[in-house]
Simulated scan of single mutants.
Amino acid sequence: MAAEGKVLWLLGLGMAACNLTGARLGVHFALKRGSRFIRVVLLCVVIALVVKLAYDQFA
């Protein structure tokens, strides 16, 4: 779509704002709660992704 000149600027700005907000929250929690918290969150996200991919593949 972008090669044809059809860029969804409003969607892109919304995605950039959410990305910035998520990065700031991630840094805040990493500094406040430490690496153990980040490790647990990362493990939960990976497990959720594996479950979703397995469900999409086999269901």
Rank of each mutant, 00 (worst) to 15 (best):
M1G: 06
M1T: 11
M1V: 10
M1H: 10
A2W: 10
A2P: 06
A2R: 05
A2H: 13
A3K: 09
A3T: 08
E4V: 11
E4W: 13
E4T: 12
E4N: 09
G5W: 00
G5C: 02
G5S: 04
K6Y: 12
K6P: 00
L8I: 07
L8A: 14
W9M: 11
W9K: 04
W9P: 05
L10M: 07
L10D: 05
L10I: 13
G12K: 10
G12L: 15
G12H: 14
G12N: 12
L13C: 09
L13M: 12
G14H: 10
G14Q: 11
G14F: 13
G14Y: 11
G14V: 11
G14R: 09
M15T: 05
M15W: 13
A16H: 07
A16G: 04
A17T: 13
A17R: 06
C18S: 08
C18N: 06
C18D: 09
N19Y: 15
N19P: 01
L20K: 07
T21A: 13
T21Y: 13
G22V: 02
G22T: 00
A23N: 08
A23Y: 14
R24N: 05
R24K: 07
R24H: 09
R24V: 15
L25P: 00
L25W: 03
L25Y: 04
L25N: 05
L25C: 03
L25G: 01
L25A: 02
G26C: 03
V27I: 12
H28G: 07
F29S: 01
F29E: 06
F29Y: 09
F29V: 00
F29T: 02
F29C: 05
A30T: 05
A30L: 05
A30G: 05
A30K: 04
L31I: 00
L31C: 02
L31Y: 01
L31P: 01
K32M: 04
K32I: 01
R33I: 09
R33T: 03
R33K: 08
R33D: 04
G34Q: 13
G34Y: 15
G34T: 07
G34H: 12
S35F: 14
S35C: 03
R36Q: 13
R36Y: 11
R36K: 10
F37G: 00
F37K: 01
I38P: 00
V41L: 02
V41R: 01
L43A: 12
V45K: 03
V45F: 06
V46W: 11
V46N: 06
I47M: 09
I47P: 00
A48I: 14
L49C: 10
L49A: 08
L49R: 05
V50D: 05
V51A: 15
V51T: 14
V51I: 13
V51S: 10
K52I: 13
L53R: 02
L53I: 12
L53G: 02
L53V: 08
A54N: 04
A54H: 01
A54C: 02
Y55E: 05
Y55G: 03
D56I: 03
D56E: 12
Q57N: 08
Q57H: 08
F58A: 11
